[in-house]
Amino acid sequence: MPSLPDVATPDVVTLAERAAAAQAQDPHVADVALKTAFFDWLCRMGDNSLILGHRISEWCGHGPVLEEDIALANTALDLIGHTQMWLGLAAEVEGAGRSADDLAFLRDAMKFRNLKLVELPNGDMAVTLMREFLFDAFHFELLTALTKSSSPRVAEIAAKALKEVSYHLERSSDLVVRLGDGTEESHARMQAALNKVWGYTGEMFAEDAIDDAVAEAGIAPALSDLLPFWQRTVGEVLEEATLRQPEQRFDAHSGGKQGRHTEHLGYILAEMQFLQRAYPGASW
């Protein structure tokens, strides 16, 4: 081969095994009583990153200016990286021989556990940025709490992801402020975006039996505990952005976490899963 000698690393499997062996012992991973809830919760973490990352990646090559195109791709790349970690751990906890890729590419919509917020179409940059900011502000609080998880594996992933998500929040909140307080048009677009996605934000804090079980086990915080922090960040940023917090209920739309999604998710999956579905068992 003239100029392409070492395209494939031969011993990736060994490397992966060694890395797995080096990971901290985690009693929760093998806890049978907790398995269903833990698996489901890990899918929620992974699916939020996967679907939001997918949406943001749709901008690649279509951004409003080169610098922003590049920045959005960085965010999407971070989120895809988080997906690999969360769904990787989910697959391990499930112990059914599925991989992170199997979970991403071979589950149907009703098995997806992401928030409805992250599957909403990109709309204009205003919707994309507002959606990201409202999620980032939640994501940041959640990951911060998860760094103290009773599960060392969860804490480890959270610590890695938090570094990146801190920057996501810094960037998205800054852009919300700037565009909110920019021109009349940018202000109007940001306000319209806020009004559009606001009703989907409450789902981030809506607790169900799964959340209770992982909170009980000390794996994750009670989501309601995060709400005041989120409200403070969002309140401050919106005020600086000269935007008005909508009066409508913030929890008007929920169900994504339980697998009842908007119509949009089906189309995302149809696109995302096409190759794995069309050529079952092929290796890529």
Binding site: P64, V65, L179, S186, H187
Partner: peptide, 10 residues
């Protein structure tokens, strides 16, 4: 993207 670029300039 014009409104985005102009908004940030403003």
């Amino acid at each position: 993207g014009a409104w985005f670029r102009d908004g940030l300039t403003a």
